[in-house]
Design a protein around this nucleic acid. Structure first.
Lengths: 243, 243
DNA sequence: GCCGATTTGTCCGTATGTATC
DNA sequence: CGATACATACGGACAAATCGG
């Protein structure tokens, strides 16, 4: 596939910032200098920098330059970031993952389920309930509804390994957008049944819808995390063109 | 200030999508059509659309068009979104806010505090502890450290009203980037003292650093929310140029 | 305070590639 | 296959903010 030049530049700059070649609070080379260095137009450099801004790595200052605001973080817990599967998260957090499939059913969305999940009423769905463990400790209870016609051929065995690997690898599905809501909820009987709650009476809950590259919602998820192993990161920038 | 054309287009499209003039799952007019309609270049239209993509409003499909994936949400709880003050959040959520200042002190960052907050050791800081109530109910306990040399002239009275109004309005500070981490923590004695916890033994905690337009971190915050009035929203998109 | 050099911000027009229909 | 639509990239122009002399 066609490698994008702005993405190469983005990655290169990102890596240099992480290595602290460009230290916290220092300025990057100017856009003109970078466009000379990477042998590209200024627009292409600007695009790479824009990415770094949304990552919270740098900040542009009109007339002054681009300052790095990247500080390495120690992350003790299980950090949730972009779009990734449980398996990918576990690997990124250097933990050993295992999954037990507790339920695997085919259902059709009724009005109530449709309203909750965002699917159209009548949509055929595959429901999966899984218990996720890290380093042998059961920490996350995962509810999933997949559109059966998009996520074709799912089996309990695939659910145990990695649904995302299957969807992307076997079906060629391209996962693009994920809308998520973080809340904290009191534990339910089902949570208590599977998770060792260590005295907590609530859970960190991520509820989300996932879309493929055609803009079709193919998944609704609710992940219920034991609080002590949970961390969600975010960078917000205030857009003010005009003011 | 200079209004940006791409931002006008962005706002116009956004409003049309919210009004469902462009319905969920429908296609926007093509980029060429939009550039003709708004009398601008295709680049400018693309920039507006890129904004809508990061907002989770639309999704571009190579060779096909741009599909809206916006679904209106009912939000019962107190939703946290971009960068905004408690006062702004309260207004957006249509609730009446009040604030009680529980502590207001000047301190200097020692090594431990510096490591926790991201400030340099030795930085003079203003510490503020506030109890936030919505519709008369105490729901949030807010810890703030402000760089004293940036947030000059803070007083308890300003802390009671709105520090952000003061910083932006009086000092002309431009708040730009905010890095946040969401966790769930067990309640501490201090939380219990001020908040009516309704049986919850944990809190939703947002910890964050805020930077001004010069890339200077001027604030460290920890907001401790009673769980039932808390909701955090997020849209993630998977960037895959090249693949 | 002014002026010029530097740097980022906005916008345009064009060309080419690639995916879809 | 051609037409349409989005993706990437270039080069140029001018505006606006900053900084040094």
């Amino acid at each position: 596939m066609p490698k994008a030049k702005y993405d190469d530049i983005y990655r290169d700059l990102k890596e240099r910032i992480e290595r602290e070649e460009y230290a916290y609070q220092s300025l990057l080379p100017s856009e003109n200098e970078l466009s000379a260095r990477y042998a590209c137009s200024r627009n292409t450099v600007r695009r790479a920098i824009a990415q770094l801004v949304t990552d919270g790595y740098v900040q542009s200052m009109h007339g002054r330059g681009v300052r790095t605001i990247y500080q390495p973080v120690e992350q003790a817990a299980f950090t949730v970031g972009g779009i990734e599967s449980f398996k990918e998260s576990a690997e990124r957090n250097h933990r050993t993952a295992s999954t037990e499939v507790l339920a695997f059913e085919h259902v059709v969305a009724d009005d109530k389920l449709a309203a909750r999940t965002g699917f159209e009423p009548g949509t055929p769905l595959t429901y999966i309930l899984r218990l996720r463990s890290l380093d042998g400790e059961p920490l996350i209870l995962d509810h999933n509804y997949f559109r059966t016609d998009v996520a074709k051929g799912l089996t309990p065995e695939i659910a145990r390994r990695s649904v995302y690997d299957y969807l992307e690898g076997e079906l060629g599905l391209v996962i693009t957008t994920s809308k998520r809501t973080m809340t904290v909820e009191k534990v339910a009987a089902q949570d208590r049944k599977y998770l060792d709650l260590k005295g907590y009476n609530c859970l960190a809950v991520i509820t989300g819808q996932t879309y493929d590259d055609r803009g079709i919602q193919f998944e609704w998820t609710q992940s219920r995390h034991r609080p002590d192993y949970f961390r969600f990161q975010d960078v917000a920038t205030r857009n003010r063109p005009g003011v």
